[in-house]
Structures are given as structure tokens and as C-alpha cells.
Amino acid sequence: MTNIIEVSGLTKRFSGVTAVDDATFSVGENKIYGLLGRNGAGKTTLMQLLTGQDFATKGEISVFGQSPVENASVLQHISFIKESQRYPEDFRAKHVFRSAPWFFSNWDADFAEQLIADFRLPLNRRIKKMSRGQVSAIGVIVGLASRAPLTFFDEPYLGLDAVARQTFYDRLLADYAEHPRTVVLSTHLIDEVSNLLEHVLVIDEGRIIIDEDAETLRGSATTVVGTRPAVDAFVGAREVLHRDAIGGLASVTITGLSAQERKDATAAGLELAPVSLQQLIVRRTNTSEKEFEAIA
């Protein structure tokens, strides 16, 4: 399998802050990646480095086999949709869709038109008069219809309601199936997207702390609930991701349980509860769950 992106020892420091800290990973061709992490973890900076919008302090970045910085032959094949994407003041949505095909050689105008109808986007309204969700819809449409071989979505749906977000996921999945390409989706709405992802990268305080196949991650952790002595006896020396206790009851999240161990636990009168991808990441990044909750 080919890698589209190869990163090694990548570090980005701003005055005193290390936004990306010695990151090493690769991104395989034609897969959907989730770049997950809390706000300020370094997701946007990492994507800006990968798209040549920012400059690395240290380390190597190779995209399509070359450095992306000021490299038209690389950047022409990248579409980067940012949450905070700015549009020219006087632009209406139609101006964006008129100019986008000049820059994206895979642009599909029919698909764009269908998406504009799906998201009920007013083409003639000035962008600065639009709602936050409508502005986000422009980005989502550009990102999908550009069909760039490498597409980055950085929290693309601020202000989009649940229905519109579902539309985005459905269109992304359907179009990706027809036109396979590499997609990196950065989000904190992990539960919503977890089934779309093939691979998961979790970044925390600038470091890549999880780089794993989504299917491997799913069900990799389990919460064991029961009386404190029983739980403690079962958990033993295992790595504990999280521990809660109420009165005589304990609830402990651990990783890697075999089928036999599950049976043993049930036999010991313990209850096993699944841990979602979102909960797992919350546990691993020591974050309050609130930060990953829906914003709309």
C-alpha cells in the first residue's frame, strides 16, 4: 500500500508554545483518516504544516513524495477546508463556485450543484451576510466537489445542524465510495464520525498519542463495573485508563480483554460495558467529556 503523507520528527514551535511535538506518522492512500483531539491540541497547525500553509520548525514532511511548501505540483492536488476559512468580503457563494474549478482539476460541477441544493445554500447572498452554518456549507461543498486526491476537512461544520451534518457524512461516504481518495477529517464530534473512519490519529498537546486502525481501536477498551474488591481482583496489574468509584462500587476502564477474560469477568459477577471511540479518547487525553459534545 502506498503512503500519501510521510511525516517524521515534525515539530512546530510558536513563541514558547510547542504546537506540534516530534510527530511521526504516515497516511495511506485512499483511506478516510480521523484526526482527533481536543481544542488546541494541534490539529489545525498539523494540517497547516501538511498543506504548506505553515513552516515546520524541525522534521520532515513528504506529501505525494515531495515537500508541500510552495510546491504547486503537490498543492494542486490538495483541498483544505478550514473551520475558519475566510472568503473575500464582497464574494457571494456563486463567486466561490465559479472560481473553484480553476484550481481543482477534478472539480465536478454537477455534484456541486446537487450539494448546493442539498444544503439549500443561497448562491446570491453575500457571504458576510450568511449564517455560520451557511458559510460552513460552502466549505463542505468545495471540499467534496473538488474531489482532490488529498482532502482535509478541519472541523468543517461549525454551525451546521445535525441534519446537515448527517447530509455531509452521507455525501462524503457515497462519493468516496465512487471516487476513492484520501480524506483527513479533523473533528471533536467523534461519536458522529467514528463509523466513517478507517484509521484514527489522536493528537494531544502536539503529540500523536494514538495511530491505529479504527476497527482495532473499537472495542479495545472495556469498562468493568462491580464491587470494589471484585473489580480490583480482576483488574490486577492491568493498565487502567480510568477509575471511578461510588460507595462500594468501582468502575474501571481497561484495554485488551480476550473472549475468555470476558467470560471470567461475567462469571465473577462483574458487568462489562463497551467504551466508545469518543470515551476512549476522552480517557486517553484526560479531557472532560463536554469538550467532545455536539456544538450545534
Partner: peptide, 11 residues
Amino acid sequence: MTAITTVRPPA
């Protein structure tokens, strides 16, 4: 360089 397929040739 990895082969990149596009519908139209890039500019």
C-alpha cells in the same frame, strides 16, 4: 512521486 490521477490535467 506517486502517480496522481486527475480528470483534467492540472493547470
